[in-house]
Each structure stands twice: as C-alpha cells, then as structure tokens.
C-alpha cells in the first residue's frame, strides 16, 4: 500500500514537472515562430537643402550612428553612412578631389561611397533620401 501511494505521489510530481517543462518550452517556441512586428521604421531626418552647398558635406546623427549628405559639383546629392567599413572611424569629406578619406588608416572612397584604395572591405552604406521642397528627407 505504501509503495502504491508513493508511486502515485511521484507520478503526480512528475506530471507537474512535465507540465511546467511543457509551458517552458512552448513559450519560447511560439515567440520564435510568431510573426514579428515590422521593425519600427527608422527615424527620418530632415536637412535643409541650404546646409549642403555644392561641393560641401553635412554630417549628422542618423539611426544611432553618423551619416553624411554631400552635393557633388554637378549638383547630385548623395546620402551615405559616414562610418568607415574597415574599423568604424568617421570618414572625412575632401572637397578638392571629391573623395572621402578615413583618418584612421587612409581608406579612400569616391563621392558615391565606392572604395578607391586602402583597407576598407566594402563601400560606404548608401542611405535612401527624398527631396522635399526646401529640405532633404533622409531615411
């Protein structure tokens, strides 16, 4: 009789543990498979056009990092991440030859962000933007 009741007791305990384990595995599983809420759209930044003169560059905070807007001599506007793809230093705009230079290890990029020379493994990341009247809406 004693064995019997001990068995029932243990079986109930194991059942309880099993139920707890089932809940503990189901929750992460559902979270893992559940459709994710669309990533909160990156905050857009508006820059007045006047702040980006021809041949000039405007550095600003964007998405927790530094970005740059330039207006090439022909008038084309480019928006790029200013973070060097080599080790993460902030590139500098060189007005005379319309290139980006990274001060850390001399990585050189064109105005469009393509690598000219130096250690960077990838071009600077392009950022979408739209012209909106007197301002440039980046993001």
């Amino acid at each position: 009789m004693e064995t019997r009741s001990r068995r029932t007791f243990l079986a109930v305990c194991l059942g309880g543990i099993g139920a707890a384990a089932a809940c503990l595995t189901t929750y992460p599983l559902i979270r893992y498979l559940a459709p994710r809420q669309g990533e909160a759209a990156r905050k857009k930044v508006a820059i007045p056009s006047a702040e980006v003169p021809e041949g000039g560059a405007k550095f600003f905070e964007f998405d927790g990092s530094t970005a740059v807007l330039i207006r090439k001599k022909g008038g084309d506007i480019v928006a790029l991440s200013a973070v060097c793809t080599h080790l993460g230093c902030i590139v500098q705009w060189q007005k005379e030859n319309e290139q980006f230079l990274c001060p850390c290890h001399g990585g050189l990029y064109t105005a469009d962000g393509a690598v000219v020379s130096g250690p960077p493994p990838k071009p600077l990341e392009k950022i979408p933007f739209v012209l909106n009247g007197g301002s440039i809406l980046v993001g």
């Binding site: 001990r6 068995r7 305990c13 099993g18």
Partner: peptide, 20 residues
C-alpha cells in the same frame, strides 16, 4: 537555472519512481 533545476528534479523523480 530554472531549466537545469527542473531537469534535475525530473531526474530525481524518475529515479525515485524506478526505486519503487
């Protein structure tokens, strides 16, 4: 910690049940 604890408890439970 909870996962390890739970697994150990289940192991002990099975062991005791086996003993019976």
């Amino acid at each position: 910690g909870a996962a390890v604890g739970l697994a150990l408890l289940a192991g002990i439970g099975c062991y005791l049940l086996k003993k019976t």
